[in-house]
Amino acid sequence: MPTAVKHQRELGDDIQVIFVECQGADRDTYEAFAWKMKWMGNAAMWTEERPLPTLGSGLPETALIGVDGTVILQGSPGALGKRLNEALDAEIKKSKQAPEGTPAELKKAWTHFLKGEVAAALAECDKLATPAANEAKEQFNSRMKAKVERLKRLIDEGYVSEADALAGDLSKSLKGATELASQLAEQTARLAEPALANEREASKAIDAALDKVALDKPFEPGNVKKIAALGEKFAGTKSAERAARFVALSKLKIER
């Protein structure tokens, strides 16, 4: 199993792993391959698009992107050795504190923000009204806007369970942050629509079932049958489409 899968499973929300297929396999092939190898069922994402250029000196290759978007390390995992784990630990630590070089007077705003108290963080920035405080405020707003946009996409794509959880977190975080809270309200109103009830039930049942089979012989006929049956039960939902995709992938002949 790739170390990155272990990292994603063990470190959960603290990191995001992105697997990039670089040998020209199509999406169906590499997704089926990942299911077959029991690498799914965690938060890792899979793509064939390279978010940064590879070194071109062979696979596998790893790149660690830090909390501020800077590439910290790039190279063969073997050559990077324990430097990679050390750098990863350091970045996780950074993600839980104010960025290096934050002026002392802005630390309070960052502490609020990192605790999820966005309104208090924004108020602190307004109180200071310095260029650094304005910059921090912009960053807080932009990160939270991205989360609200992500919530919208989760609803659009039928990941209702995930959307409910995110909406719950955001509702607490954005309490009192007027502008962001009103953007959130649009999405929470969508989540409350009766039309979404069946999608919610489907998402709960199918996503949980997929997570469960991911770790235990995903493409075993019994598991595939179970997912297919859930897809039929919730026909017409986005989650049923995901179930149908899983069933189709299970039928692909993947060589390994």
């Binding site: 790739p2 992105i18 670089c22 978010p51 290759e61 830090g66 909390v67």
Partner: peptide
């Protein structure tokens, strides 16, 4: 942003 990202380039 705000979370480390580990990019794993691999092949099937």
């Amino acid at each position: 942003r705000g979370k480390p990202v580990l990019v794993d380039f691999w092949g099937t």
